[in-house]
Design a protein around this nucleic acid. Structure first.
Lengths: 209, 209
DNA sequence: ACCTGAACACCGTTCAAGT
DNA sequence: ACCTGAACACCGTTCAAGT
């Protein structure tokens, strides 16, 4: 899938630096200059390997998510024997579990919310949509893949909107589920999760004929 | 609800300029300088009325979406000359505005989220859930009405799920939008709100044939 | 091919200074 | 109170120049 060239040590150092920054602070801003400095290279050098900032972020996401156990979930993405909606629901459920599954993840999320006090004296903590954005990138990738797959089918109609829009929609739905889960006494249950994710996935993959 | 001071003409011109820019291009970047120039004022003047960029964006969104008072919005529910999806989107937008319209509402919401420590001794903290349930009832009513209307049409297919399920789905979507709005640094814009609500409304009202 | 660092055109925010 | 415009500290991207 990814190119298997001799993996330039500079390129690797850049990716490691970016990953380390996210490890230090999930809300870190991965700006060209910050990453380049941490990696000990020039901005121009960084740009040589990652022509655009989006390329850099994508590569970091890939590097990070490839490590995680969700990879076998990801493999289900290409299992064309199953309906696309089913696969997308499974992937979304996995993403949801990553966000609220363990206590540490939930704690991170809650502290991010708590840190969002408007009465902050110092803004070094501009919290934390980095993680959210990471999730969004993954989701966008899934939607793009499934969209392309749908486009290949001869009788498929036009998709109602682009993958980016669909991914943001799904991100909002996940945020809603996570929030309901975090709220005390919330009545959200697994059944609601399932039906919600299924409706959302169906909406995103629906074609117009 | 909002303060009814003499509405400074400069402030109005700034809002009009921003709205015009969005009308020209829904993806327009509402930067300080761009809006200030279009409005014919200095950036400092803009900052005087809108201390932060987020304040500006919020005010623009409010100005654009908050044109209709809620009750006349509700009356639009039965305006069968308009597509059901359009009507539902308008209603949802109204519900969203009720929740995050002014700063006090947002502040309430945010503190409720921050206070959602799992180590709560007592469960007095359910004011937000009451609101949530109220909103859910209203939404369920809308969906039921529109579902029934769809069922009346002779060539309509079967709805994919019941009104209750659809309402809970829409409630989750709204919760997601509200949360994204409450998080600082969120890039949520009017355009995202609109596309998200439209996708959700379409999904709920889609029939199987 | 890889790498540098300056330069360009942005961004949001702050603030002394005017009226 | 309102308004100006410069200044500050960022941002992503481009590019001539080196090796």
């Amino acid at each position: 899938m990814a190119d298997r060239q001799t993996p330039s040590p500079t390129r690797s150092r850049i990716l490691s630096a970016a990953a380390a920054m996210l490890a230090d602070n999930p809300a870190a801003t991965l700006s060209v200059r910050a990453v380049a400095e941490r990696a000990g290279v020039s901005t121009g050098s960084l740009r040589h390997f990652f022509p655009t900032q989006r390329d850099l972020i994508d590569a970091v996401v890939a590097a990070i998510t490839a490590i995680q156990p969700t990879e076998e979930l990801e493999s289900a993405l290409h299992d064309t024997t199953r309906p696309a909606v089913d696969r997308l629901v499974d992937l979304l459920r996995g993403a949801l579990r990553d966000t609220i599954g363990d206590d540490s993840a939930r704690e991170r999320w809650r502290s991010a919310l708590a840190a969002s006090e408007p009465t902050r004296t110092d803004d070094q903590a501009a919290p934390t949509l980095a993680l959210e954005r990471l999730a969004l990138r993954r989701i966008a990738g899934w939607v793009t893949t499934l969209h392309a797959e749908a486009a290949d089918e001869s009788d498929a109609g036009a998709l109602l909107f682009d993958a980016e829009t669909g991914a943001r929609f799904l991100g909002t739905v996940l945020t809603g589920l996570v929030t309901e889960q975090a709220l005390p006494g919330s009545l959200a249950r697994a059944a609601h999760h399932d039906s919600t994710l299924r409706i959302a996935a169906t909406a995103v993959l629906t074609t117009r004929r």
